[in-house]
């Protein structure tokens, strides 16, 4: 594993009185693709929201790029170079594709080639053909590409990708996997939340298995693929 850039230790989170995360710990190394895999309601999205600051952890530490971030506001964490692509996509439906990208734009980051709309349109050619179209009038797959592009405009060093394959057609899923491998090739680290083991297998180096708000297993993707018992216990439907 490369040097860790995103580290969580002992995270606990609540919604009201419901204890959602109990002692979650994970690490993502620079340039690495890590998957957080688990069933519906396991706590994947909540973990992501804690990492980006949208949910305040009740206890625990988060470290990103050498800074302690568990008390920071979302914008401050994002400015350190952590990108967030939410599960529900949350495209600004009234804004055009170009304007959606503008919202995500941040200054270039040292050591990374800055993302521009032009460069993103090469990565996502579909988007380039609909710059003036309102986000609300795009297909699900196009919206998913747009959320990723929008986050990349912030020149993040690491991206949290929450179930990007959800609800997409198989062809688009293949494209999505290719995109994630592209990002990795550009030196962007990715923490991916997934239920889909097949998709995770296409892109991830390592995996954490989460169940009922706790990490139950961690290992390389190959180890997980070989471990029938873990898959049966935590991942089968």
């Amino acid at each position: 594993m490369a040097e860790a850039m995103l580290i969580a230790r002992g995270l606990h989170a609540y919604y009201g009185r419901a204890h959602i995360l109990a002692d979650v710990a994970l690490e993502v190394g620079a340039g690495e693709v890590v998957v957080l895999i688990g069933r519906n309601g396991a706590g994947k999205s909540t973990t992501m929201k804690c990492l980006i600051g949208l949910v305040r952890p009740a206890a625990g530490e988060i470290e990103f790029a050498g800074y302690r971030t568990e008390r920071l506001a979302p914008h401050a964490i994002a400015r350190l170079g952590l990108g967030y692509v939410p599960e529900e996509r949350r495209i600004f439906t009234d804004l055009t594709v170009a304007e959606n990208l503008e919202v995500g734009r941040r200054p270039p980051r040292q050591g990374l080639e800055p993302w521009t709309p032009e460069r993103l349109f090469r990565l996502f050619p579909n988007l380039g053909e609909m710059r003036g179209r309102p986000g609300g009038r795009m297909s699900g797959g196009e919206q998913q590409m747009l959320t990723i592009a929008r986050t990349l405009m912030g020149n993040p060093a690491c991206i949290l990708l929450d179930e990007p394959s959800e609800g997409l057609a198989p062809v688009i899923i293949e494209q999505m996997a290719a995109t994630i491998r592209d990002l990795k090739a550009h030196g962007v680290a990715v923490l991916l939340a997934e239920q889909n083991l097949h998709f995770a297998g296409l892109v991830a180096d390592r995996a954490y298995v989460i169940e009922k708000g706790g990490i139950r297993y961690s290992g390389s993707m190959a180890e997980l693929a070989a471990d029938e018992a873990v898959r049966a216990a935590y991942l089968s439907v």
């Binding site: 914008h75 994002a78 439906t93 009234d94 503008e102 919202v103």
Partner: peptide, 24 residues
């Protein structure tokens, strides 16, 4: 203007705007 685009975006989803690094 960028200010205007951010205003329109925040009108729809403030948290997302913050998660993209905008100081609300």
């Amino acid at each position: 203007t960028r200010f205007g685009v951010l205003v329109r975006a925040a009108t729809q989803d403030r948290d997302m705007v913050a998660a993209l690094g905008v100081n609300q």
